[in-house]
């Protein structure tokens, strides 16, 4: 039985993860703002319902993603 140890995978680049998270946060915010803009320009019951359900949710997702990136950066600098 050969004990050929598999090579350890390269460590994930935290900067790449942060960039992806930030891009998702930007997209999520942009979607919430577009919904808000649509509501501000032309209010219909459907747009209002969609905005009230999705708007705060998308913004919360963006907050969490940005918060994660901030936390990760603070930990990497050993501030936290």
């Amino acid at each position: 039985m050969s004990s050929t140890a598999r090579p350890a995978p390269p460590p994930a680049n935290p900067k790449v993860g942060s960039t992806v998270a930030l891009r998702l946060a930007i997209l999520s915010t942009a979607l919430a703002v577009v919904l808000g803009l649509t509501l501000l320009i032309e209010e219909t019951p459907y747009v209002f319902t969609a905005f009230m359900v999705l708007g705060p949710l998308l913004l919360a997702i963006a907050f969490v993603l940005l918060g994660m990136v901030i936390l990760r950066e603070l930990r990497s600098r050993e501030i936290l």
């Binding site: 919430a32 905005f51 009230m52």
Partner: peptide, 10 residues
């Protein structure tokens, strides 16, 4: 600010 104003308007 946008969500607050859009909610108030809606």
């Amino acid at each position: 600010v946008v969500v607050f104003l859009a909610t108030a308007h809606g």
